[in-house]
Nucleic acid binder design. Sequence first.
DNA 1: AGCACA
Length: 474
Amino acid sequence: MSTSGQPQFRYTQTPSKVLHLRNLPWECTEEELIELCKPFGKIVNTKCNVGANRNQAFVEFADLNQAISMVSYYASSSEPAQVRGKTVYIQYSNRHEIVNNKSPGDVPGNVLLVTIEGVEAGDVSIDVIHLVFSAFGFVHKIATFEKAAGFQALIQFTDAETASAARNALNERSIPRYLLPEHVNSCHLRISYSAHTDLNIKFQSHRSRDYTNPYLPVNPTAIEGIAQPALGPDGKRKELESNVLLASIENMQYAVTVDVLHTVFSAFGTVQKIAIFEKNGQTQALVQYPDVSTAAVAREALEGHCIYDGGYCKLHLSYSRHTDLNVKAYSDKSRDYTIPDASLLAAQQVSGLPGAPTVWPNSQAGPIYHGNEFSAGGAAPAQYPGGQVAPWDPSLQAGRPPFVSAAGTYPGQPFAASSVPAYATAAVTAGSSPRTPTSQIPSAIPSMGFSPGIPANVRPGGASPPGHPTYYGQ
DNA sequence: AGCACA
């Protein structure tokens, strides 16, 4: 009764709603298959990438007559059926329906599940994975993990078309040997589609990346060879140094302004840039020096000390991962002392120009992004001279939030001119007229032990509100 | 260029 399992000869196959297509290009997608077949009827099922060469496919029409019309048409046509110029041979399948058309992994999506066979997690770096898959389009995110199946990676593209292109090209292939450690002999990629559409990447690390969000916090414990604490000569952990200090301000009873910080930190050298931001309800600041050694001296001198006498505004200092801050030249939360005429810029920016550049650190954990495709992918905002950021082009990075909050990143908050922070209330009510930046300089407590350049201490409860910005309430 | 999937 059934013809399946019996030898089928040319011209003698019984018609079937299911057509067997051969000699397809290896790039052939389901979409191309449907394009070819749908003029003849309604397609209810397909099966692509069949056969050892993955160059065959099945298409099932809703009605037998539709399948017959397609076979008949091309049997008498002077133009053969083609996909991208390649002749496709069509015949009735010896089965009458497509069964088990798609495992979940065959349902196209924008996220690929890649199993890398024959390797351990440490053998293939996320940068190599990124390099390989970036050949097909912008890679948004990568997450890697080890499961029973082996070393796996989820790779998020913009759309299913791009993901399919990568899958079709790389599935069952190998990562080039020169990208792998010498001891790795085989590195087969088995690629299916993930059901995910948007990966949730929490940290930039050696196992996960979000290339749409370069300001995502770096997980220090998860970076190999980069943020891993280097070992000093004594074998103890050595902190990675930087010319940028991250200051956490504890017990902040009184306002700490950019000017306050500038005064305090200028005692040790030229302060280039300052950015103040809130992190987990705590005020932090990034202070940029020209070089690491200056930062180191400042860190040594200021760590654990208080800006104001009485234990107020205690400083905790560490080295930032940033090396060059990109801050607004003049705002209540940031200052770029390397830009001349900062006060002019202030007038422009405080007025709230639409689309005014927000604050972007120039770098975050630089080595992570070294040599990747950011510029090609349009992920990194172009830097203009003077630390400003190119006008944002949403088309370059659809879906990317305009502001990103990250460790050590000032998220470009709107100017808080109308609200006085609670911690500043005492200073405000202590009240005095607005003062010039030079006259509102606070003092570091004498016990800090760095008298040069630091004015005499002023008690916070006293008549002089330390560092009260002149533009609050305006 | 010649019939899959689980």
